[in-house]
Write a protein that binds this DNA or RNA. Structure first.
Length: 494
RNA sequence: GGUCGCGUGGCCGAGUGGUUAGGCACAGCUCUGCAAAAGCUGCUACUGCGGUUCGAAUCCGCACGCGACCUCCA
């Protein structure tokens, strides 16, 4: 673990549009909230990237010694299909299609979401609250907003009064919008006649006939508005003002803007000090999104069962691929890039394996391990610059391989330092997992391999290379790679 | 239309006003019975046009191209 004092963390704050020193409200405690998935369909790859970004943040802050309370919600209440529809929400719609109870849908896709998170080694949050379990708090927040004069009830629905709020507050400060501009840019207002202003957004929606998920409220049967649950659950578990709120770039407006307005209107305090937004995943230059239909599921990516994929890629390859790009940049998916990442990850892992067996040596050129360690810390502290940190690890890998070949001098102390660094950065911080273990096979294959390699060694000793190569070639056909190293042959499954 | 962002070598992707990012691919060499792995060497870019500067891929302006948000979306 590193010491925060020696390694101050800097974070890009969407609010200020600047990189700022990260100073928690109540160090060493840090409150982190991330908008979680809506569980009405399979989690898609864009979600994985966002949750991976904040997984790295969680891991890094923890590594620095902070005590992080990480809250990531599950949206199980269902949001409206859009602002002007008849009130059927996404989960209800899906439930009708599949003839399942809404909560059955929720459970199914929550389980699926958790499976994917596990597969990609994304750590579970400290608290994973659900919207449906916080209806009372949501209703309470609406009542406070109404009491403060920033919301009004119409026909069983409640709307947030944006123009009223904008008179005295900066609605749009997060997303860089002006309410005047938005007024002139608003699209058709049909179906919105209940609202006093097209900018207003729903805090509570009356449940129309046939709407499956609804609850009683002071305004009648209905369900909460889209933005309310995050405001309620973040402040309930992290306080009226907390440190970091994260989410995908596409949530900046209106979702996060509305969260700010709700919290200020209800409790008079800005909820978040540092806003962090992860960028989008793109395919052929376009945003990968459910609505675009151009994405694939994590499962399809792993199995390769999708028309855009030449073959499957392991979860750790995908994880590493994503981490080779800064979270605030768009990342484009391509087979070539995935394959490059796969090779790179293998190289790093192989170097780490060599490091475990490396013996000290005074031969060759020296290598400054201390500088490498500092560079890795500096990269991560610079707004979570994992691609640069990984580049430094590759420098380390070259030194390790060089030492293994006798070209680089490393003392026992330096080797220990490198082992600590690689172990911490690769596994604790980047959250990578060695994949070889799962492929090693059972005792029987280990025994058979041992036998085959002994026979091959015999053949080689007799200079019967036809026989030795036959063994290696046949094994290759079976997906087993044999390599002759100076310490004898090693094998691994493809 | 409004707001914001991006445009880096064959590909993916970092980046600071002046020193090699890194990975993958490719070529040569070393090692090796061969192969693989590894090492060494090479390939050294910054959309275009102006401007600021002793000096800009990095700052400013314009142009072109692309994208995101403005509607549920991570």
């Amino acid at each position: 673990m590193a010491n925060v004092q020696d390694h101050p963390f800097h974070i890009s704050n969407t609010l200020s549009r600047k990189k700022e020193a990260f100073i928690p409200l109540d160090a060493p405690h840090v409150g982190l909230y991330v908008c979680g998935p809506t569980v009405y369909s399979d989690v898609h790859l864009g979600n994985v990237r966002t949750f991976l970004t904040f997984d790295i943040l969680f891991r890094w802050l923890t590594y620095l010694g902070y005590k992080v309370r990480y809250v990531r919600n599950i949206t199980d209440v269902g949001h409206l299909v859009d602002d002007i529809d008849e009130g059927e929400d996404k989960i209800a719609k899906r439930a009708r299609m599949e003839r399942l109870e809404p909560m059955e849908i929720v459970q199914k896709y929550t389980n699926g979401f958790h499976d994917v998170m596990r597969q990609f080694n994304i750590l579970p949050p400290s608290i994973e609250p659900t919207a449906t379990a916080h209806l009372i708090e949501q209703i309470g927040m609406i009542e406070r907003i109404i009491a403060n004069g920033y919301a009004y009830a119409v026909n069983g629905s409640v709307y947030f009064d944006v123009p009223k709020y904008a008179e005295t507050h900066d609605y749009g400060k997060l997303s860089g919008r002006k309410t005047e501009d938005q007024m002139s840019n608003t699209r058709g207002t049909e179906g919105q006649e209940e609202k006093r202003s097209p900018l207003d957004f729903a805090l509570w929606k009356k449940a129309e006939k046939g709407h499956l998920m609804h609850w009683p409220s002071p305004w009648g049967e209905g369900f909460p508005g889209w933005h309310l649950e995050c405001s309620v659950m973040s402040t309930k578990y992290l306080g009226h003002t907390f440190d970091i709120h994260g989410g995908g770039m596409d949530l900046k407006f209106p979702h996060h803007e509305c969260e700010i307005a709700q919290s200020v209107a209800a409790d008079g305090e800005a909820p978040v000090r540092y806003w962090m937004h992860g960028n989008m995943l793109t395919v052929e230059g376009r945003k990968m999104a459910k609505s675009e239909g151009n994405g694939f599921t994590p499962e399809e990516l792993v199995t390769g069962n999708h028309k855009l994929l030449e073959r499957g890629y392991s979860p750790m390859t995908v994880r590493f691929f994503m981490l080779q790009c800064h979270y605030a940049s768009t990342l484009d998916f391509s087979n070539a890039a995935l394959q490059a990442a796969e090779k790179g990850l293998q190289r790093l892992m192989a170097a780490n394996d060599i490091l475990a067996k490396l013996k000290p040596s005074a031969e060759g050129t020296s290598f400054d391990v201390g500088a490498l360690v500092k560079a890795c810390y500096a990269a991560m502290n610079d707004d979570l610059n994992s691609p640069v940190m990984i580049a430094h690890l590759f420098d380390g890998a070259r030194a390790i391989n060089g030492a293994n070949d006798g070209n680089v001098a490393l003392s026992q102390q330096e080797i220990d330092q490198l082992r600590k660094l690689f172990n911490e950065m690769l596994f604790a911080v980047l959250g990578l997992m060695p994949e070889a273990e799962a492929k090693a096979g059972d005792d029987l294959s280990a025994g058979l391999m041992s036998l085959l390699l002994t026979m091959r060694a015999d053949a080689k000793n007799r200079k019967d290379f036809a026989a030795s190569d036959l063994i290696r070639d046949k094994l290759t056909e079976l997906g087993v790679t044999v390599k002759d190293t100076k310490d004898g042959p090693v094998w691994e499954r493809a």
